[in-house]
Simulated scan of single mutants.
Amino acid sequence: MRAVQVVGFGRPVAVVDRPEPKVEAPQDVVVRIAGAGICRTDLHIVEGGLEAAFNQRLPLTLGHENAGWVEAVGTGVPHLAVGDPVIVHPAVTCGFCDACRRGADMHCATWRFPGVDGWPGGYAELMLTSARALVKLAPGTSPAPLAPFADAGLTAMHAVRRLTPFAGTGTTVVCLGSGGVGQIAVQLLKILTPARVVVVEPDEARAQTAYELGADEVVTLPAEAAADAVLDLTAGHGAQAVLDLVGEGGVPEQALRMLAKGAVYSIVGYGGGVHIEHLDMINRELTIVGNQIGTHAELGELMALAAAGRVTLGTETFPLEAAAEAMAAVAAGQVGGRAVLVPE
């Protein structure tokens, strides 16, 4: 089968021929990929930025935003049948550790992260995963457009759920960035909270999309320069929550400046950092929250919202063979929503 692999850090990905995955364990499921979303994490992987964090060895088949159809199932998977449309949770988990028992899939003691940690991901025609990772979609669902919800959507759902205690009536939530994750986050903030939603997005097209998706205000400035504008919008008090989808450059420092007393700085984007002044943290009683992917239950809830048409995301499709070109377009900011690789 065809697969897209990282064959050298700092080099373009390559389309290679790989053996088809086979069912071996009772809970195994092989998914025929309909679409695989391109995440900025994939770009970081290609650059070598996650080599140490995940002990990566090359070659590595990318792809952790996946959806498709069941191709084959193990003997312990009675609830799925060949041809069922599914979306794939990014984590392969044990089901028995304390974290799994609590439903915190991403904290599993022995989890695997296909497409990131060496387990082959979904930039391929077929992918091996676990039945625990799959959310069954309604019959007749087209899986490809939903692929980015497996991470971009799931991360947004998890992050928004965790900041809702700070986003009550009369509050302001700032979303830094309006790419794929930000577009979903804006919709979820309007569904799950009564807060005023302010989006910081310098790109005119993405700013317009943010308005169309329900943002109450859009600040068309780079996130590095938006703190004063946010303070002006909040009469100098600041926002009760800032959801940082950028996380690099001078953005974290400006995000902290935007916070009101008792507020939360919710981090999704990464690559940068900020110096924390303990006295400031104490005086303003701030909270900092890091967000990974969400839970299996959150992915199921998100799919219900998507099926009802309450959460949408614009996608641009590329053939599997054009993975390098598609990733370059994402890196250059030329894709407004989410890029999706489609095997043909």
Rank of each mutant, 00 (worst) to 15 (best):
A81Q: 15
R102H: 12
L128H: 07
E253S: 15
G269T: 10
A52D: 14
A91C: 09
D17S: 14
G8K: 14
A215E: 06
T234E: 06
A326C: 11
L62D: 04
I276F: 02
F54A: 00
R257C: 09
L126P: 03
Y211E: 15
A304D: 14
V6R: 01
R11D: 14
A195I: 11
A124I: 05
V340Q: 06
A297M: 06
A226P: 01
G103M: 12
G121C: 12
E301Y: 15
P202C: 03
V242W: 07
I191M: 13
E325K: 13
V174K: 04
G68H: 09
P85N: 07
L299Y: 09
M157T: 00
C175F: 00
G115E: 03
Y123D: 00
N55Y: 06
E217F: 02
C39H: 07
L245W: 05
D151A: 08
V15Y: 07
A260L: 11
L154D: 02
A223V: 06
V73R: 11
R206S: 01
P143Y: 04
H278G: 09
V340E: 06
G8N: 12
E125F: 06
L233K: 06
E321V: 13
P222A: 09
A144L: 10
L189N: 02
F166T: 00
G83R: 08
A14Y: 00
D117A: 05
R2K: 15
A297Q: 14
V16Y: 05
M258L: 10
S142I: 13
G177Y: 13
P165I: 09
V77S: 01
R102L: 11
E51H: 12
E325A: 15
K190V: 10
A210V: 03
L188S: 03
D98R: 14
V246H: 07
T61C: 13
L146G: 05
V197L: 09
A99W: 10
V181T: 15
G122L: 12
W69L: 14
T317D: 14
A91F: 14
P165G: 01
A241P: 00
P90G: 05
V116W: 09
I191S: 01
I87V: 14
A207L: 11
C39I: 12
A308R: 14
T287M: 13
A67E: 11
V181I: 15
T93S: 08
M258K: 03
L62G: 04
L163R: 01
G262R: 12
Q254P: 04
L341Q: 05
H237K: 13
R132P: 00
A185Y: 13
D17C: 03
N66S: 10
P343S: 11
A304I: 05
A152K: 04
E321D: 15
D17V: 10
Q187P: 00
A124H: 07
A72W: 10
P78R: 00
V242K: 08
K190N: 06
P343Q: 04
I293Q: 07
